[in-house]
Design a protein around this nucleic acid. Structure first.
Length: 359
DNA sequence: GACTCGTGGTG
DNA sequence: TCACCAAGAGT
């Protein structure tokens, strides 16, 4: 394997497992062996910090403790429990996959790569993580931590931001798994990356692999892993209406695909080039909701940055002219104290909070 | 292979 | 401040 001997691999495994047994963190999903609960934790942990996930996972397990309970739940309640975690398609994919497990596999989470990989939202990392952690199947689970640890440990200079690098790291990670130790070893690799072999200023003096680390030997550990640069977020002007009618405000639901899929928000949309926010608001509410209104005063200015977008959101209080839009699956008139019941993106939660402060 | 998809923490 | 980035997946 790639210039790595069996003896070197065994040494890495031995050191890493000893370190992990001694100092692993007491995480709530490590107190269970239920593959469903481990699966949910892995989905929540995608691109999300452990400390952030803990309270979400705990609440989620209280409300949806089994495959059956999640499969039977209303989609919006699942989304509400995901509110604030981001990447909301994870929640919809998870419930969809759980329903498939319920109907197709009798409620038992599959234990083969072939089957579990076919579930929506279960990619190369999550499939390996669930199989190895829950079933101790000797397959790799390569996440950002593993890319970083292995690139330093074996001084691999491939660009880890490119999909092509994955094959090499997966092959190496699989080769390193000590016989019968897939669960602990994979978690140990990630835990080392999260606590010792961190992105900036790695804690090499505390690392159990320091003596066998190729990049530390060369003093280049800070230069790894090699990563391409990201593009800056694209700015986007958003006009939003706080539309009131008989003590209620209008909420609309976003499409089930794309940005903030299925979340509720105050109605509005993208401002065209050169158009004023006020004009855009009247145009959009007419085009989308057949709603005529007068724009009264500027209510709030909210800036929110996503991975690839930067919203410049201007909100205005508005007044309906004539008949209000009828309620539907995608439009609801709600009292301000009911806003908390709807899953909303963070930018709109700020507006909701400001609105509640007025009444 | 390059984009899209959230949010909060960090140095 | 701001660029980075965190137990990635879908298109």
């Amino acid at each position: 394997m790639m210039n790595v001997s069996n003896r070197e691999a065994a040494e890495v495994g031995k050191r890493l497992l000893a370190w992990y047994n001694e100092s692993k963190r007491d995480l709530p999903w490590r107190r269970t062996s239920d593959p469903y609960k481990i699966w949910v934790s892995e989905v929540m942990l995608q691109q999300t910090r452990v400390e952030t996930v803990i309270p979400y996972w705990t609440r989620f397990m209280e409300r949806f403790p089994t495959v059956e309970s999640l499969a039977a739940a209303p989609e919006e309640e699942v989304l509400k429990h995901w509110e604030g975690l981001g990447y909301y398609s994870r929640a919809r994919n998870l419930q969809s996959a759980v329903r498939e497990v319920h109907t197709k596999y009798g409620g038992r989470v599959p234990d083969t790569l072939e089957e579990i990989s076919s579930l929506p939202g279960v990619g190369p990392y999550t499939s390996g993580a669930v199989l190895s952690i829950a079933y101790n199947v000797p397959v790799p689970a390569v996440d950002g931590n593993v890319f970083r640890v292995l690139s330093r440990l074996f001084l691999i200079e491939d660009d880890v931001s490119k999909p092509a690098a994955r094959k090499k790291f997966e092959g190496l990670a699989e080769f390193l798994i000590p016989p019968g130790e897939a669960s602990d070893f994979n978690q140990a690799l990630m835990e080392l990356g999260a606590r010792i072999c961190i992105p900036k200023s790695p804690r090499c003096p505390s690392c159990p692999l320091q003596e066998v680390c190729r990049s530390h030997k060369e003093g280049v550990q800070e230069d790894l892993p090699v990563k391409g640069k990201k593009k800056p977020p694209r700015p986007l002007d958003i006009a939003t209406g706080i539309v009131r009618y008989e003590e209620k405000v209008l909420l609309t639901r976003r499409p089930l695909e794309g940005l903030l899929a299925g979340m509720w928000e105050f109605p509005g949309g993208e401002v065209d080039n050169g158009e004023s926010h006020e004009n855009a608001l009247q145009r959009i509410l007419w085009e989308k909701w057949a709603l005529r209104l007068t724009v009264n005063s500027h209510f709030a200015d909210v800036q929110h940055t996503f991975s690839h977008l930067h919203w410049n959101l201007q909100a205005y209080t508005c007044e309906v002219i004539g008949e209000p839009v009828a309620e539907s699956e995608t439009a609801r008139w709600v009292n301000v104290w009911e806003l908390a019941d709807f899953p909303m993106p963070v930018a709109h939660q700020k507006l909701a909070k400001a609105l509640q402060g007025l009444v």
